[in-house]
Design a protein around this nucleic acid. Structure first.
Lengths: 333, 333
DNA sequence: TTGTATGCGTTATCAT
DNA sequence: ATGATAACGCATACAA
């Protein structure tokens, strides 16, 4: 593959001149510029991004760490980042790491080896200290979907407590008095936060959420069925189900329907996230919109901005609040 | 960030020795090896992947080009590649390019600038010549979801004609005599190939597929509704709908249901791809399984294998055939 | 406006 | 077993 040197020789100019042309640098005669460009064309010259990153001490790429690409949620996240990357003419270096501490760590470390200084990270398993450390080393380190007070200005996150509260309040406002909850058994903050919000709303309404009305399982369709089964075996005395996410909600609906319990006539269901599936399943899912794509875009912009040398402001953070999307799975009782 | 030089000085050894330790090279005393490792730890040393790629003339990363991450299909593709990448301890460089010629080209070019020599490319818009050219330049260039005779041994693709034939044959075998088709209006080969297979099966059964029974629209849910609407306005004389993909199938089902046409009692629907949505929508979608994840994994392995210097064999190609997945959206008539 | 020279962090070759 | 040194391709400070 042709190098800058080849171009220089072939064009009869110096390395420096070619370099200037490549980078649209100033101080180069229009005539030579055209000539050099032509030679570049002929030789099929492409700048070596590695050499460039080495000498400039910065990598133009934008690093992204996600847990699991297959999950539509992360796909949307990646897409949000991708849009911004393209607009900024920046390449994405993507590292998927599954929800395991080891691989998540490794994903970030690999990105560091490429010296990417802009990075959007989705990490649920690494502890605060580790993340704060990374932030100290990488100027454009931005967390998505997580809040850490010490680096609040690098966090783009969703207010899950409010989200939980909203979904419960909405169900209550529609006349439901007996609520069941199906939650995730992953040991991360999100389920707890959403649950806390739900409890707040129920308490505020002067009602009680019995422990046996909460089912825990993996946060997917299968888990939704499982958790729903568990709750049903304890009690059938509820008119609405609040799910941890849309996948669980869909699973719960499937199970209810399999048992000839009509959704939403007999039991209403509400999801969380508003992934594509929410529009596809029957009945269409009433859910909480998690604006992950917009958030991801924001995170990417932030990462690029910080990496460019702009100092993060103090006392800011990027909090988003979910909103109710009314569809067909929850009706007034 | 600490360099190999810093480590060498701090450890009181030469650059070469440190380099050997880093790369687990031979010929280095166990004592010094331990010592150097310790210093590396202390200094938080991380090899610079850019410098490494520069001097070795090869990038350990695996490049991936996809059209649109948000699409669950590509998400699965990416996931298949990702699994292999992780097993081979290789980083993914992902370039999403949307289905436009310009961006697809740019995606590949950017990857080339990083000198990645293993590359899994999903391209529908670039012409054969361009792709063959890339293949000539990049040892580990592998196409997924496309077949080009001249570089057959670098193609991992699906037999879409057979796929189309299978879906039609299945519908026919279930007693359906009047078939409607909703297809994609994108100008790529896939829709035509699938349509051709469908025609083959219908011809073989001694039946005819009238042009007005084919609706064209964008290959998503919205398009599925649109195409279904078009067909319905021309004729209601069909008992089964063959869709270009699951998203269109889901859209078609929605429209039918909105018009109080029961699926599958009155009209059966069959999809293509078997993305997650096929299991979520109601009724669950009978569809053709497109083993994209396995294919992507294969492509990634191939790319890494070729990039490592192994010559592609002559006279081989990697063809996959879809299989029917029977669920609830198609019933015997 | 153009050219020369230096160094970025590594690997690899050749000595020792 | 270890060290000195020359590339790798490029950007840039400095000279001309």
């Amino acid at each position: 593959m042709a190098t800058i040197k080849d171009v220089a020789i072939s064009a009869g100019v110096s390395l420096a001149t070619v370099s200037r042309v490549v980078n649209n640098g100033p101080k180069v005669g229009e005539k030579t510029r055209q000539h050099v460009k032509k030679v570049m064309q002929e030789l099929g010259y492409r700048p070596n991004a590695n050499a460039r990153a080495l000498v400039t001490q910065k990598n133009a790429a934008l690093g992204v760490v996600v847990a699991e690409l297959r999950d539509p949620f992360f796909a949307m996240l990646a897409h949000g980042v991708e849009t911004v990357a393209r607009n900024n003419n920046v390449q994405i270096l993507l590292s998927a790491g599954s929800i395991e501490e080891r691989t998540e760590l490794k994903a970030i470390e690999t990105l560091m080896e490429y010296r990417v200084d802009a990075m959007v990270v989705h990490s649920k398993t690494l502890d605060d200290t580790t993340l704060i450390n990374f932030a100290a080393q990488i100027p454009g380190f931005v967390l998505i979907n997580r809040y850490i007070a010490q680096i609040a200005n690098r966090c783009v996150w969703l207010d899950n407590v409010t989200g939980g509260r909203l979904m419960a309040e909405y169900a209550l406002s529609q006349g439901h008095r007996q609520l069941a909850v199906i939650s995730s058994d992953y040991h991360i903050d999100d389920p707890n936060e959403r649950l806390e919000g739900i409890r707040q709303a129920i308490d505020a309404a002067g009602l009680k959420l019995d422990e046996c009305m909460i089912g825990y399982a993996s946060p997917d369709q299968e888990g939704g069925m499982q958790a729903m089964r568990n709750v049903l075996s304890a009690s059938t005395d509820f008119s609405a189900v609040l799910a941890y996410n849309d996948a669980m909600a869909a699973g719960a609906m499937t199970l209810l329907q399999d048992r000839c319990i009509d959704v939403p006539k007999q039991v209403s269901v509400i999801g969380y996230d508003d992934v594509i599936l929410a529009q596809y399943c029957r009945p269409k899912l009433t859910t909480l919109r998690y604006p992950i794509e917009a958030m991801a875009a924001k995170a990417a912009e932030l990462a690029i901005h910080y990496a460019a040398g702009n100092q993060p402001q103090d006392n800011v953070t990027f909090k988003y609040t979910p909103t109710i999307v009314k569809r067909d799975s929850l009706v007034r009782r």
